[in-house]
Design a protein around this nucleic acid. Structure first.
Lengths: 163, 163
DNA sequence: ATATGTTAGTCCAAAAACTGGACGGTGTCG
DNA sequence: CGACACCGTCCAGTTTTTGGACTAACATAT
């Protein structure tokens, strides 16, 4: 299966993977949320090849996650900014950051300290049920999979298993 | 930069990317949360090459995300199960699913409907501040980056920018 | 007893993706 | 004028991924 074909699968994770699923894209997006916007800055910070960076930025633009915006003329230069769709990736980057902090941070030295401006506390955002407000995890969630998944009778257990 | 080196970077997103950042890993993990546990099932469902699947499973085992557990002898066979570290990826997969559902689901036809067992409602989990309980997003969060990031004076804006 | 099926891989050669570094274009500054 | 900043593209060499054949150890059916 080719990368492009993954984007055609009937599965939200698969389609998201077609966008997010490579070594660099998550890093680039993380930098964008940090305020990085320009080609040279991405390249200096991430040390990936210019070719790959150009390819990724074009891909993210094509998928409407970033948009190129002119910030000067003479010479004409563009910077990359998040679209609304891109901003909606905040929870994804944020939960990845939570996980990385938990398992990979050096000796209680969390690389990025996040503060909730509204209440002023340093926090790690948590997942809750928007209905009852209780925290959710793989044990208190179930899922009814649709056709594509349900057609595999082997899949009977787990939080997203068939009901 | 090589893949292995990314895991050495002083950045939780980078280190997580060294594990999660490829075309197949997110799909495999999503299937694991759906209850898939065996080599053949992964291969049939995801249609990736057996070689790549074997490589990925070994990598996830090496990173202590999955563990191989014998489920029969004669012949000896193993299945793959989540470790505690792996289960902690639930919020990551879940927020990716939210994003994919929002932007890629076919005509109001969400492929996996998730139910919160505790309260019984069909929901999409949301990110909140564990302190005040309010929803968080890229606008009401800030972050103080540490050395590695703070040394880049260009990074001044965005939710994780230096304070 | 032989044939067929199930499951978990490994091996190989071809195709695709990624790499670093040079290069091009367009401007500014001193 | 020379040096620098910025955003890319081009190229040849390396690494990764791919599909399909193949092994191995049993179980089950004929």
């Amino acid at each position: 299966m080719k990368w492009d074909e993954i984007g055609q699968m009937q599965c939200s994770v698969a389609r998201s993977s077609a966008v997010l699923g490579d070594r660099w894209t998550l890093l680039i997006l993380s930098d964008v949320f940090l305020g990085v916007r320009r080609f040279e800055d991405f390249q200096k910070r991430l040390k990936l090849s210019r070719t790959t960076l150009a390819t990724r930025l074009q891909m993210l633009e094509r998928h409407d996650v970033l948009r190129r915006e002119q910030y000067q003329s003479q010479p004409v230069r563009y910077e990359y900014r998040l679209t609304a769709k891109g901003r909606d990736l905040f929870p994804v980057i944020s939960t990845i950051l939570n996980w990385g902090d938990k398992y990979y941070a050096d000796d209680a030295d969390v690389p990025i300290i996040r503060t909730h401006k509204t209440c002023g506390h340093d926090i790690q955002p948590q997942l809750v049920c928007p209905d009852c407000g209780e925290p959710v995890n793989e044990r208190n969630m179930t899922g009814r999979a649709r056709a594509a998944v349900a057609s595999h009778p082997d899949v009977e257990r787990g939080p997203f298993s068939r009901s």
